[in-house]
């Protein structure tokens, strides 16, 4: 059921128009905020999938990268009065360094599967405690406040609308990148690593190099997401950007959406964020735990019903071979 080229073009065009028009609609502020967060989550998940999905190096440490991205803006601003643009660049560079510092020894010494997950979890916790303990620099558990003057000089007009366009552009860039990667030689190498690392190595794939590239790329994109977070919220706390809860969110949304496909994490985030937010706003302040509780139940169902995520479902339904992986040869090792 491949769509005609013309129909496809029209669909994309109308989607583009809808996306461009959204901020001009008289939406309640809360709904608009949810839409921004939706794109933000979709962006982070798409960044995650490059290493967590394509190469199946399941990382529960991506909050580290979000955190570094956000905190380098905050810290450099509060200590040296550096503009957030430079802060963001420094953040991305630092994140890549951290990713390489963790990734190189991990991949070099063959830390695999669950053990890689443990290492990333430990990294996330290390970062959390370091940030909390360095009170003089990071503000400890209280976090950092970015003065509104700085933001408005950066974003000029209406903060929310400009943020919206920024995150939309970032999201489509990440999506485009993920798609390009999946259909490139690099992407096929990653797929080979996902299906069977030893076999890939035996076939001459430089697994160390490709895993490292995937990890650093994913980390750099995630740090950019963190930078966006810092500017959009203008308030950074350890609990908002660091720690396992953030990592869990990114990883589960992507996996539930389908981590084998370039569009999967986006689908996951686009479905899950409105779901939890709707439940949250319906309940108001009552029953605080319920949205996440339902999310947990949803995850259980998805893991059972669609091991390849929602996108696996969709793509097998459409009968398209968009994915680079072969689903049949999937067994537990």
């Amino acid at each position: 059921m491949k769509l005609e080229k013309g129909v496809r073009f029209l669909l994309l065009l109308s989607l583009l128009i809808v996306i461009l028009v959204i901020p001009l609609l008289p939406l309640p502020l809360y709904v608009f905020h949810v839409i921004i967060i939706l794109f933000f989550n979709a962006y982070l998940c798409t960044a995650w999938v490059i290493v967590g999905g394509f190469a199946k190096q399941v990382s529960l440490g991506h909050s580290t990268f979000v955190g570094i991205g956000a905190y380098s803006i905050g810290v450099l601003l509060s200590l040296f009065n550096l503009t957030p643009i430079l802060g963001g660049i420094v953040g991305v560079l630092m994140t890549v360094c951290v990713a390489l510092t963790l990734g190189y020894p991990c991949f070099r010494f063959g830390v695999r599967g669950p053990y890689f997950t443990f290492a990333t979890m430990a990294l996330a916790e290390v970062m959390y405690y370091v940030v909390v303990s360095l009170r003089g620099i990071t503000g400890g558990a209280l976090g950092i406040f970015i003065p509104p003057g700085v933001i408005s000089s950066l974003l000029l007009l209406n903060k929310k609308i400009v943020s919206y366009y920024i995150i939309v552009v970032m999201f489509f860039f990440a999506l485009f990148l993920a798609r390009k990667i999946q259909h490139s030689k690099f992407g096929y190498y990653l797929t080979a690593i996902r299906e069977d690392e030893d076999a890939a190595e035996a076939c001459g794939v430089d697994i160390l190099k490709y895993k490292l590239v995937a990890l650093s790329l994913s980390a750099a994109l995630t740090a950019l997401g963190g930078a966006f977070y810092a500017i959009y919220y203008s308030y950074i706390t350890p609990d908002g950007v660091l720690g396992l809860a953030v990592s869990f969110q990114i990883a589960t949304m992507s996996l539930a959406g389908g981590a084998k496909f370039w569009f999967g994490p986006a689908v996951g985030a686009l479905l899950i964020t409105p779901f939890t937010e709707t439940v949250r706003s319906m309940l108001g302040g009552r029953f605080v735990g319920v949205p996440m509780l339902l999310y947990g139940v949803l995850l259980l169902i998805v893991a059972r019903a669609a091991p390849d995520g929602v996108s696996g479902f969709i793509s097998s339904f459409l009968g398209r071979s968009e994915s680079a992986g072969n689903t049949e040869s999937y067994e537990r090792h």
Partner: peptide
């Protein structure tokens, strides 16, 4: 037991959410 590693992660994180938020509630 029959599913790949990612599904295990998803399920257990789901369980974590259920337990934590159930307790919170």
């Amino acid at each position: 037991l029959k599913l790949p590693y990612e599904c295990q992660v998803v399920t257990f994180v789901g369980l974590i959410y259920i337990f934590q938020n159930g307790a919170l509630l």
